[in-house]
Design a protein around this nucleic acid. Structure first.
Lengths: 97, 97
DNA sequence: TAACTGTATTATAATTTTATAATATTGTAA
DNA sequence: TTACAATATTATAAAATTATAATACAGTTA
């Protein structure tokens, strides 16, 4: 792979990986890696404030990592980007064995 | 894997992944993933200033991602952390095909 | 030893991210 | 329709990161 192409890839991938670089936000992603969850469950599971959890989720949704499904007055977030899911799985193999 | 353990892992892994979250720094890591390189080569390859390249390299060395070998008046940096190397390879599979 | 090359350091400004608190919105159930 | 639960938004303060410029240092070579 040539440097020029690699550079472009790195811009794209780094902007995804920004979201992996915060402990509880990474935990959110791991938590979501086995299926959709509602906001309150997420914020209680990872120990972030409701506000910050909501902000993080929204941002990750805006940037295409997560998807959102609304039902009743719940918001269910899930990992939408398939590459992100792949990466989470392979990180679990590398770091959690 | 339980939440408590996962939380600890995420603290550790997120601090590694911080270094993946900047485009040219990620490019440095990719560039080094096929072997050691000297600083000038690195900064020319990735298009960062000499100063910033040196700062990034030093920081990644301090945090255990990179190793350093000195020869003559050159500094050769290489990926020292084997998990980082594994992750780089698996990212290349996911994002660069 | 003087000049040069490669690398590191320092200081600082600019920007981005993170954290926190307060409040707003929306749907649901009493 | 009131009250409540779930989620979102806003503003702002604090902290961390990134960028830039200037300079220092160390080894090499003329």
């Amino acid at each position: 792979m040539d440097m020029k192409l690699m550079q472009e890839k790195c811009v794209e991938v780094a902007s995804l990986l920004k979201h992996f670089s915060h402990p509880q936000r990474l935990l959110i992603l791991c938590y979501l890696s086995d299926g959709e969850k509602q906001v309150t469950d997420i914020h209680e599971a990872v120990g972030l404030s409701q506000s910050q959890t909501s902000q993080f989720l929204k941002r990750m949704q805006n940037e295409g990592l997560l998807g959102l499904r609304r039902e009743k007055n719940y918001s269910f977030y899930y990992v939408e980007n398939p590459d992100v899911l792949k990466l989470l799985k392979s990180m679990q193999k590398i770091f959690c064995k």
